[in-house]
Computed example of a mutant assay.
Amino acid sequence: MPPAVHPDRTAAVLVGVNFGAPHFDHELDELGQLAETAGLQPVARLTCKRQAPDAALFVGSGKAEEIRLLAEAEGAQEVLFDQALSPVQQRNLERAIGLPVNDRTLLILEIFAQRARSHEGKLQVELARLQYLSTRLVRRWSHLERQQGGIGGRGGPGETQIELDRRMIGDAIKRTKDRLDKVKRQRQTQRRQRERRETFSISLVGYTNAGKSTLFNALVKARAYAADQLFATLDTTTRQLYLGDSQGGGHSVSLSDTVGFIRDLPHGLVEAFEATLHEAADADLLLHVVDAANPTYPEQIDEVQRVLREIGADHVPQVLVFNKLDGLEPARRPHVLQDTLPLDGRECARIFVSARTGEGLPLLRAELAARAQAARADVPRPVPDGAAVPIGHNPG
């Protein structure tokens, strides 16, 4: 008997295909979190292994039939893949399974559409959705094949309407890009004003659900939305952070909370969120927030570094902030709260904190004050003394 499904949620079968990736998510935990965040309810999970994607069905005809039977047995209303599907694969799978089939890319787009609050955020999501939809006109508008274009019934099936839809989407993409360009110019003006005021700017970056917004709130006493879920925050929030006299001269810095990164972040989203992500590229310092309690944090760090390289922010100095110290078991707690860790071939300062309890935050504020003071004096900030101490390391 299929499990009970919440009346407001759509039952979904989750599918993941292992093509030999070193860190394949066999339990589909992250996809399950994404599905639940988007309002779906996973009722079954299926993984398989292939050398390469099948050109027509991504998983092959035999596995597609297995998915169809599983979805039927579990009462699923949708099938969700952990990888990106081509328009042809998506259409063929829907025909073979008899249910809507979506991929990780669309799922992330749906979450972003639900969470965007600011005018800029909504524009960015709209652009990414339009770009995604433009590649799937054949699938989304297949009913138009029944129409005849032209007087007297001549012309290709649905040709006139499909071309019209393509032009409409193209025009909408152009309008949205123009509006985003205006927002980008406004942001550049704001940055120039900050530069004239010689404001030291800091951006929070990190994998989604690492606790960036909770840390932001703890540092600036703000009320930015924070929750234990993926992509709780999409819109950039900037506040002044005052660093008191005892921590380096009694001055303020600019602190920005940015959207979280995730594995296989759709390239269209990276492009669409260029204005927001460049808040990180233009910062004087990045606070790279890491979920220290997550066993996969090394892979998450690598993914954040990849996106930073893609947006041209890999040159910005970083401080690694290992958050959620309160979530670590006693045996995994570090012996010191401040040390260094190799990152992309160089030693990077690392500080362990708990944004929820406040542990380690005085060390972090002192580090930020010293960095800002060194920048004002144009003196390079030395890396803190001490070798890196991995989590759980117990010397002697």
Rank of each mutant, 00 (worst) to 15 (best):
P3Q: 00
H6N: 12
F19A: 03
G20S: 06
P22A: 14
H23C: 10
H23V: 14
L28G: 07
D29I: 14
D29W: 10
E30P: 07
L31A: 11
L31C: 12
L34W: 04
E36L: 05
A38Q: 08
Q41G: 02
A44K: 00
A44W: 03
A44G: 09
P53S: 14
D54L: 00
L57R: 00
G62E: 12
A64N: 02
E65W: 00
E66R: 13
A73G: 11
L85A: 10
P87K: 01
V88Y: 05
I97A: 12
I97D: 14
P100S: 13
V101Y: 09
N102F: 12
L107Y: 03
Q114S: 13
H119C: 03
L127C: 02
R129K: 06
L130Q: 05
Y132T: 01
L133G: 00
T135S: 13
L137M: 10
V138H: 03
V138L: 01
R140S: 01
R146L: 11
G150H: 10
I151M: 13
I151W: 04
G158R: 00
Q161F: 02
L164V: 11
L164P: 01
D165L: 11
R166T: 05
R167T: 10
R167D: 11
R167V: 06
M168S: 13
I173E: 09
K174A: 15
R175P: 02
T176G: 10
K177I: 04
R179H: 13
L180Q: 05
L180P: 05
D181G: 13
K184Q: 12
Q186K: 03
T189L: 14
Q190P: 00
R192P: 00
Q193D: 14
E195D: 14
E195H: 07
S201M: 07
T208E: 08
A210G: 07
S213R: 04
S213A: 11
T214D: 04
L215S: 03
L219P: 07
A222G: 15
Y225E: 15
T233S: 08
T236L: 04
L241I: 08
Y242Q: 08
L243Y: 07
L243I: 15
L243G: 11
G244D: 15
S246D: 15
G248K: 05
I262R: 02
R263M: 04
A275T: 14
T276V: 05
H278T: 07
V289L: 04
D291G: 07
A292F: 02
V304R: 01
V307E: 10
R309D: 14
A313D: 08
H315M: 00
P317W: 06
V319P: 04
V319S: 03
K324E: 06
L328Y: 09
R332E: 15
P334E: 08
V336M: 03
L343T: 09
D344S: 13
F352W: 13
F352E: 01
F352R: 00
E359F: 00
A369L: 11
A369I: 03
A377E: 15
V383Q: 05
D385S: 14
I391C: 10
H393Q: 11
H393C: 07
N394H: 12
